[in-house]
Computed example of a mutant assay.
Amino acid sequence: MIELQGELERRDAAQPGKDFMFGRITRSATKEGMLELLIGYHLLEGTVVKLKKPLAPAVEYKVVGVVRHKVLFKNRPRALISKPDPTRRG
């Protein structure tokens, strides 16, 4: 389950029936217990948080899983690369 605050926009036109992969989650190589979400050239760092109450759909639906943990990204994304300054030479 992915919970986002704000909007996530695609640069290419969405194609019906095609899967949409927006990023990659990996364990941090430098910070123990942290996860990193890489979306394009933006990096978010997060931690795994146990939910107080498991999240599941209402009884009318067939339950295929219960979400007990989420990854919490508290800080704004960090740009890994930046565009070169056209006015700067050298």
Rank of each mutant, 00 (worst) to 15 (best):
I2D: 00
E3C: 15
L4R: 04
Q5K: 15
G6Q: 09
G6V: 06
G6L: 11
E7D: 12
E7Q: 10
L8N: 05
L8H: 00
L8S: 03
E9S: 12
R10P: 02
R11C: 10
D12T: 07
A14T: 11
Q15Y: 02
P16Q: 04
G17T: 01
G17D: 00
K18T: 01
F20C: 04
F20E: 00
F20Y: 03
F20K: 00
M21W: 03
I25G: 00
I25S: 02
T26K: 03
R27E: 03
S28R: 06
A29R: 13
A29L: 12
A29M: 11
T30L: 10
T30Q: 10
K31T: 14
K31H: 10
E32K: 11
M34G: 02
L35A: 08
L37Y: 01
L37C: 09
L38K: 04
L38V: 09
L38H: 03
G40F: 11
G40T: 07
Y41A: 09
Y41W: 02
H42S: 13
H42M: 09
L44P: 02
E45D: 01
E45V: 05
G46N: 07
T47W: 01
V48A: 14
V48F: 07
V48D: 12
V49W: 11
V49D: 09
V49Q: 13
L51N: 15
L51R: 14
K52Y: 08
K53R: 14
K53M: 15
K53P: 10
P54C: 07
P54R: 08
L55F: 09
A56I: 13
A56R: 12
A56G: 08
A56H: 11
A56Y: 08
A58P: 02
V59F: 14
Y61T: 04
Y61K: 11
K62I: 13
K62Q: 14
G65R: 08
V66S: 14
V66E: 14
V67D: 05
V67R: 05
K70R: 11
K70A: 04
L72S: 14
F73R: 00
F73A: 00
K74H: 13
N75I: 07
R76L: 09
R76D: 03
R76G: 04
R78Q: 08
A79S: 14
L80P: 06
L80R: 12
L80V: 09
S82T: 08
S82P: 03
K83T: 09
P84Y: 10
T87D: 15
R88W: 11
R89K: 15
R89P: 10
G90Y: 06
